[in-house]
Each structure stands twice: as C-alpha cells, then as structure tokens.
C-alpha cells in the first residue's frame, strides 16, 4: 500500500504531514468575484486554507457557499480573481511570462487532487457499488484492476458497506449511497475533499451514520476538507476553522469553539440561532 493517506493508519488528527507551501495557503482564493446576471454572489473574496486543515463554511442561504466549492471543483469559473491549489493556479497558467487562461489539460492536472461529495450523492446508477469506486482509480489514475478493487473493498468496509459490493445504487438507502460516494471520493487519493451539505437529503438517522464516517475520516487522515453543513455539532467536532459568510463576504473566521460559543457578529448570532442542529 503506497501513499500517506491510508484512512486507517495512525491518527494524525490536526497535524498536516504533507509538505505544503508553508504559508497555510494550500488553497488560496485571491480577489475572486462571481456574479450570475446582476446577482453578485462573491465580491472580491480572498481567503486561504492550509494543508490538512478542515474548514466549515456557514452562512445563510444564497451567501455563496456552494459557489465557492463548485469553483474549486472547476464546475464554475470565477469572473475575476485567481484560485490556486498547492501553489498552482486552477484556471490560469503561465505561458511566456504571462498569466493566461488555463488549457483543459492544465485544469485536469491541478484538479486531479481535488474531489467532491454532493448533496444528491450522484452515484453512477448504471454501475454496481464496487465499480463506482474503482472507475476513477482504474481509468484516471491507471491503477491495475485488482489493486483498485482491493483498495475499493477496504474503503467500502471503512464506510460500513463491505457487504454491498455487488448492489446497484438504486438498491441502497440514501445514507448507504452517500457512504459509497464518500468511498468513491477517497479512492482517488484526494488532497482536498469538498463536502456540500452531504447529509441534507437524508433522514436524521441516516445522516448520523454518514457524519460518523466523516468524523472517522477526519480523525484518521490528513486530507484537507472544505465543508458546508448545517450539522453544527459535527462542524464543531471536525473543523479547525469556521468561516461565516454573508452576501459573498466572510464576516467571521474563527475556531469552532469561539465561533459557536461567542459569535461576535450580530449576523452570525442570528444565523446560529436559526440553524436547527441535525446531530
């Protein structure tokens, strides 16, 4: 087994073990703006996330949390500003000393260490569980089939689905599907894992089993996580930092205990009061 990120290795907790640029800027948004028509969603947003850091994005509906994650996943392009990951621009590359729009192959290369789990799971319904998890390792990373299958079985066992390898997604509960999606994401050995309200489509009991799996992953890996969630207890347990968004700007950026115990901003206080804790 290669790599530093076996989910079941020794607990490394918060300590980032992978080399990064040293400035806590593994992911960096610089003056990013995004608008849809006349709706300015992000306005000159700058922030960064260190390697191995787990950061929760909170804020009212429409404040731009999903937009940020989707831009990091390259599902959306910023209108202006730059996003970089591990020192490399996501949407730009240097050519002849100039910063130009990145080619598809540049984007593919930088994106290869980023993956995302979606609210609606988005498993491939035409593939059995095992192949959902091995598809990318085999056809993107070029792993041999049997090696990819071994690893996929480990990951599926880790999320408690070692018995469901041959099921189709439609034969699983929502919670099970989401756990497969998490295994599928981990199978590509990501440095960055994006989680957008991954339990919002689930009943509370099913949400709890998914959150337990994520807690486990947070405890046992050093993958950098950006998460959007309304499960505040979970956010408090796993994150190093919480960013409070309002109208496309960060209005508060603090460790979870502080953020949840003594929110400074009036907007944060009212937001936190309004959130129903799912866990």
């Amino acid at each position: 087994m290669e790599g530093t990120k076996e989910p079941m290795t020794e607990a490394t907790s918060a300590a980032p073990v992978r080399a990064h640029d040293g400035n806590g800027e593994f992911i960096k948004f610089a003056e990013v703006s995004k608008r849809f028509g006349s709706n300015v969603v992000l306005d000159d947003l700058s922030f960064s996330v260190g390697a191995g850091e787990r950061v929760t994005l909170i804020g009212p509906s429409g404040s731009g949390k999903t937009t940020i994650l989707r831009m990091l996943m390259t599902l959306l392009r910023p209108d202006s500003g730059t996003i970089s990951v591990n020192g490399e621009y996501l949407f730009h590359e240097e050519r002849g000393g100039q910063l130009v729009t990145a080619s598809e192959s540049h984007i593919r290369r930088v994106r290869s260490k980023i993956t995302m789990v979606f609210q609606q799971f988005n498993l491939f319904p035409n593939m059995r569980v095992l192949r959902n998890v091995t598809e990318a390792p085999v056809h993107v990373l070029g792993k041999p089939k049997d090696e990819a299958a071994e690893r996929a079985k480990e990951l599926l066992a880790l999320v408690g689905l070692g018995e469901k390898l041959d099921a189709y997604p439609s034969q699983l509960s929502g919670g099970q599907q989401q756990r497969v999606a998490i295994a599928r994401a981990l199978a590509v050995d990501p440095d960055v894992l994006l989680l957008d309200e991954v339990t919002s489509a689930l009943d509370p009991e099913l949400a709890a089993e998914v959150l337990d799996v994520l807690r486990d992953i947070a405890k046992t890996t050093d993958v950098t996580m950006l998460l959007v969630t309304h499960a505040m207890k979970f956010a408090r347990d796993v994150s190093h930092r919480v960013l409070m968004f309002n109208q496309g700007k960060i209005i508060e950026d603090r460790p979870p205990e502080e953020m949840f115990n003594e929110p400074r901003h009036e907007r944060t206080q009212s937001f936190l009061r309004s959130v129903i804790d799912e866990t």
Binding site: M73, M116, N122, L123, A136, H139, R184, V188
Partner: peptide, 27 residues
C-alpha cells in the same frame, strides 16, 4: 442524464471520452 452525473465525472476527473462511454451513454 442529470447534470449531477456530469459533475460527478468531473469530480472524479474522468476524461471526456470515458465520461461518455461509461457514464452518459450507458444511461
């Protein structure tokens, strides 16, 4: 085929050809 299928293929960094042959067309 729902947009989420294309997005999942992007999240897994599947090449375009593979996205067509193993995700989109089979559905």
């Amino acid at each position: 085929v729902p947009a989420g299928q294309w997005e999942a293929a992007t999240a897994l960094n599947l090449p375009a050809r593979r996205t067509w042959t193993s995700v989109v067309l089979p559905q």
